[in-house]
Amino acid sequence: MTTIQKTLKGLWSLIVGLKVTGKEFCKPWITVHYPRQEVTNLESYRGHIDLVPRPDEPKKPLCIVCKRCEEVCPSGCIRVEGHVPGEQTGEARQLLLISNVPLPNSAARDPICAADKTLRVLDGFTLNYNYCSLCGLCVQCCPVSSLTFSSDVYLAGGSRRDFEYDLLRRLKNRKIKV
C-alpha cells in the first residue's frame, strides 16, 4: 500500500516538475541579449583604474607622485614616474601646488605628503592590467583621491601589450564632457 502511495506521489512530483518548466517556457527571456542590449549596472562596476583630472585643468591629473599606489599594489602592476621641476617661480609654481586640494586625514599625518606639498610632476603612470587583481587598494590609499575606477568591461585585445595602459595618455586623450 505504502509503495503504491509513494509511487503515485512520485509520479505527481514529475508532473509538478513539468508544470514548473512549462510555466517558465511561456515567460520572456531574462538574459541580456548582448550585442543588441547591454547591462545597465556598469556604474557600480570597478574596472581598471584611471587618473582623476584636476577640477580646473581636465588634462592634468591630481596625482602628487607619492607612489603609495605603486607600493601598496599586491601585484606590482603600477609604475609611477615623476620629477621635481627645477627653478620655477610665480604662477607656474603656483599651478603645481595642489594645496587647494584638501588632503584626507591620513595623508596630512604622513610626513612625506605634508612636508613638501608635492612639487613633483607626473611624467608617466602605467598600469599593467594583465596582472591587476582589481582589489582597489591603490584607490583606497591615494591621499589625494587621484585614482578612480573606470567601468570599462568591453575589453578585448590581440596581445598582452593591449592591456598595458598609459593612464596619463588616457587622461590627456579623454573627451571632456560638456
Binding site: T21, E24, F25, K27, P28, W29, I30, T31, H33
Partner: peptide, 13 residues
C-alpha cells in the same frame, strides 16, 4: 530553442 525557452534564454540566435 525549447531548451532556451525553458531556461529563459533565446537559444541560437
Amino acid at each position: 530553442k525549447v531548451a532556451g525557452f525553458i531556461q529563459r534564454r533565446p537559444g541560437p540566435f
